[in-house]
Amino acid sequence: MRSKKTKKKASVAKSNLKIDFVSSNVLNKKDEKSRIKYILGVVKDGTILVTDGVMDSDEEMNLIRETMRRVDNGFPGIEVCSLKREMSGYQRILDRVINNRFSIERIVNRISGRESPKANLKYGMTLIGPSKFIKDIKKNPDSFSVFAELQR
């Protein structure tokens, strides 16, 4: 009888899905390396993470690379989707200047083996979740739909 109860509890726990809404302020305090480490730590734990910011494409590629390093039998990987907010003319120029600075810093740091620079997330929204729950993401330029399936 006791074991049946435990079994029931365990199956309920398995079907729970946690979604964390994290402010970009929290992620902006971290450098790229620790930001990716933090995100994957949360997602590997079975949590979907939503934040009000967007990584640049280089950081996104590094996120994919780090995900591959962490894939194991219980963690097949992630699903990620982001929506960038359109920037006005001067914001775009400013963004390009900042981006160039970080690109140069990144190259220098990579060569010298120093810590990666702190680049803020861009305006927008990102969802990152474990692929064992998120079965599909249908994306459009202005919206996306997430199809999740809980483990039985």
Binding site: I64, T67, M68, V71, N73, P76, G77, I78, E79, V80, S131, K132
Partner: peptide, 9 residues
């Protein structure tokens, strides 16, 4: 091929 997930199953 590039992918964000690789599931052996």
């Amino acid at each position: 091929g590039l992918a964000t997930k690789v599931d052996y199953k």
